[in-house]
């Protein structure tokens, strides 16, 4: 069940990604609708984070290409926001909550310019939206995991982008915060923004997302939630039928097989 859409927000065309010659994503080909809240779902190591990083062009593509709003990502960087897994940075860095959220304004500021008063107000506003305004001067090392996640979210909001990619924004947040965040995402999608979220809980995925991408090294499904979150497709995503694919991948790494690498 792979449904393509007209005039997509994201188009991933025949994308293959390899780490050290070992493919972790095989021929991903999908389109995502504008204004939707999209969930990417799959087991650990399925390549969900890798897919988002490849879309953001943070890791090289083996083959294939990605278009966002029908343009190359480098042409629309100011419309795209990325929320990494919170473990990806060192929270012992000497910075305050406000400092981090202000980073969301850097794309608009450009090089060499200092944040202006207006930027600080936008940042404070975004902190309010995630309920963290009381913590604006707090040293980031003194935040709990869920609070760190919310700071990252505020930073993304401060970017005022049109499409958001979030790597597990619900990891380690409590139920009340999760509800608040999903409410926020819904508001954004009502304003026409596209939100792509990596998510682990199938139960809540049903109600959170209106589009689902099922992933396990290759694309299993991409389509409206009702047609994709069904037992047979979930079985295919989480079941152990892919040992063959993994074995071939290992083989490719061992034999220095270079057919897929572009460079």
């Amino acid at each position: 069940m792979i449904q393509q859409v007209e005039d997509p927000a994201v188009e991933v065309h025949d994308l293959t990604v390899t780490y050290h010659k070992k493919p972790v994503l095989w021929d991903i080909d999908l389109t995502l609708p504008k204004g939707a809240i999209i969930g990417i779902i799959g087991p650990n190591g399925a390549g969900k984070s890798t897919l988002i990083k490849a879309i953001m062009n943070l890791i090289p593509h083996g083959s294939g290409y990605v278009k966002i709003f029908n343009r190359d990502i480098d042409e629309v960087r100011d419309k795209v926001s990325y929320v990494p897994q919170k473990e990806s940075v060192d929270w012992d860095f000497p910075a305050s909550v406000m400092d981090v959220v202000l980073m969301g304004r850097y794309a608009k500021l450009g090089l060499f310019k200092r944040p202006r008063k207006a930027d600080k107000e936008v940042a404070l506003d975004c902190l309010k939206k995630v309920g963290m305004d009381a913590y604006k001067s707090r040293q980031i090392a003194q935040l709990s995991g869920g609070q760190q996640q919310r700071v990252f979210l505020a930073r993304a909001l401060a970017q005022e982008a049109d499409i958001y990619f979030m790597d597990e924004p619900f990891a380690g947040v409590d139920a009340a915060t999760e509800t608040a965040i999903i409410e926020l995402l819904r508001e954004m999608s009502e304003k026409g923004k596209t939100v792509v979220v990596i998510h682990h809980d199938i139960q809540s995925a049903m109600e959170y997302f209106n589009w689902i991408v099922l992933l396990n090294m290759r694309l299993v499904a991409s389509g409206p939630t009702a047609q994709t979150l069904i037992p047979s497709l979930l079985e295919e995503t989480y079941g152990g039928k892919l040992t063959l694919l993994a074995e071939v991948g290992n083989l490719m790494q061992k034999t220095e097989f270079t057919g897929r690498d572009k460079r």
Partner: peptide, 8 residues
Amino acid sequence: DFAKTIGF
């Protein structure tokens, strides 16, 4: 990574 994604 964030710096890269905002086009710096």
